[in-house]
C-alpha cells in the first residue's frame, strides 16, 4: 500500500482532468526571468492552438517585463518536462501532445532579465 494506514486506503486524486470544467492544466515557465516568481498554471481548452497560447494568453501575463516585447519567437527554445521540444504553432495543445498537468518552459536567447540578473 502506497501509504501508511491501518486498513485499505485509496481515494480519487483531487486534481483529475474532468474536474476542470473542460479545461486541462498547463504550466508555463519563462527561463531566466524570475521577476515572475514561479511558473504559471493555466486552465486551457485542449483545442486551443499553440499560437493562441503564445499570442493571446501569454502577453498580458508576461507583458510587464521589458524583455517580453523584445522576444524573437523564431529563436525561442522550448522544453517540455525539461527536455528540448518543438511545438507546432498552428496545431492544438492536444495535437502538440500537451496532456493535463504538463509543464513547458521557454528560453529566450540573448534575454536574461533585468540587468542580466535573470530577474
Amino acid at each position: 500500500m502506497a501509504v501508511a494506514a491501518i486498513r485499505e486506503y485509496s481515494f480519487t486524486p483531487l486534481d483529475l482532468e474532468e474536474k476542470f470544467h473542460g479545461n486541462r492544466l498547463l504550466y508555463v515557465g519563462w527561463e531566466d526571468h524570475l521577476m515572475f516568481c514561479a511558473p504559471f498554471a493555466f486552465p486551457l481548452p485542449s483545442s486551443m492552438t499553440f499560437r493562441d497560447l503564445v499570442e493571446k494568453v501569454l502577453p498580458p501575463v508576461y507583458g510587464y517585463h521589458p524583455d517580453f516585447a523584445r522576444i524573437d519567437w523564431a529563436a525561442v527554445q522550448w522544453f517540455k518536462s525539461g527536455q528540448p521540444w518543438q511545438p507546432q504553432w498552428d496545431e492544438s495543445l492536444e495535437k502538440n501532445g500537451l496532456r493535463h498537468k504538463d509543464v513547458i518552459r521557454f528560453r529566450t536567447p540573448g534575454l536574461t532579465g533585468l540587468q542580466g540578473s535573470c530577474s
Binding site: A2, V3, A4, A5, L14, F20
Partner: peptide, 19 residues
C-alpha cells in the same frame, strides 16, 4: 513514499480553477 496521501492534497490554485 506515500503517494496515496498526497494525491489528495488541496492545492489552492487547482481548487480555484475547479471553481
Amino acid at each position: 513514499h506515500e503517494p496515496e496521501k498526497y494525491v489528495q492534497a488541496w492545492l489552492p490554485v487547482h481548487q480555484i480553477y475547479q471553481g
